[in-house]
Amino acid sequence: MDPRFKIAHREALIGVALAIVHFIWWFGFAYGLGSKPVEEYSYILGFPDWFFYSCIVGFILVAITVIILVKFVLKDVSLEEEGDEQ
């Protein structure tokens, strides 16, 4: 198999894994904290806690993860035909 495909397959699996973790984080905080009675909500920077963790912190963590992936994990490959590099 084309060695570039090994890299591509690995990175696609990373994408699936990130989406699964992202979903668990998003769902866990939203419905974990958000299912309490409204009177018991606490507020962070003005936002209800479930929303703050699920959507705001969740987004920031995902963005940081993507930056780390791009900087340290994803590999540059040539997209052209092998032996046809420019």
């Binding site: 084309d2 570039r4 495909f5 890299i7 591509a8 397959h9 990175e11 696609a12 990373i14 994408g15 699936v16 990130l18 989406a19 992202h22 979903f23 998003w26 939203a30 929303f51 699920s54 959507c55 969740g58 987004f59 995902v62 993507v66 490959v77 997209l79």
Partner: peptide, 25 residues
């Protein structure tokens, strides 16, 4: 509804990572 809208963040990395290099090659 904001919670629902935030599900769209996943598209921004998912599409490129899944189709990714193999599709481009």
């Amino acid at each position: 509804w904001v919670l629902l809208a935030m599900t769209q963040v996943v598209t921004s990395y998912f599409v490129l990572l899944i189709l990714g290099k193999k599709f481009a090659i």
